[in-house]
């Protein structure tokens, strides 16, 4: 198996090649890389690939992580919630 076709974001099936070529082409931040490729936007909310997406953006020199900020925002729910529980009317 070739390095280029290896999957980085499992939920959205985004490959290493897609991420690296997008980062190279647009010289983008981790956030832009996420929005362009959908890496980190799937079911798990980026729990698996978040650090890898950040590292790819960093390796292009386009995403120097700011000292005081996490480059990819964390949003609730941070764990998958079933539709049953999401829609339940609280007692």
């Amino acid at each position: 198996m070739n390095e280029n076709v290896m999957i980085i974001c499992r939920c959205e099936e985004v490959t290493y090649h897609e991420l690296v070529s997008t980062a190279t082409k647009y010289k983008c931040s981790a956030r832009e890389l996420k929005l362009r490729t959908r890496a980190g936007m799937g079911y798990c909310g980026g729990r698996t690939c978040r650090t890898m997406v950040e590292k790819i953006a960093q390796s292009m020199g386009t995403n120097t992580p700011t000292e005081t900020n996490i480059s990819l925002k964390v949003q609730p729910p941070i764990r998958p919630v079933s539709f049953e529980n999401l829609g339940r009317i609280s007692k």
Binding site: N2, M6, R10, R47, M52
Partner: peptide, 12 residues
């Protein structure tokens, strides 16, 4: 803490 992933071809 969580573990940092290191991707290798075939890691899925």
């Amino acid at each position: 803490a969580a573990e940092s992933p290191v991707p290798v071809p075939g890691w899925t």
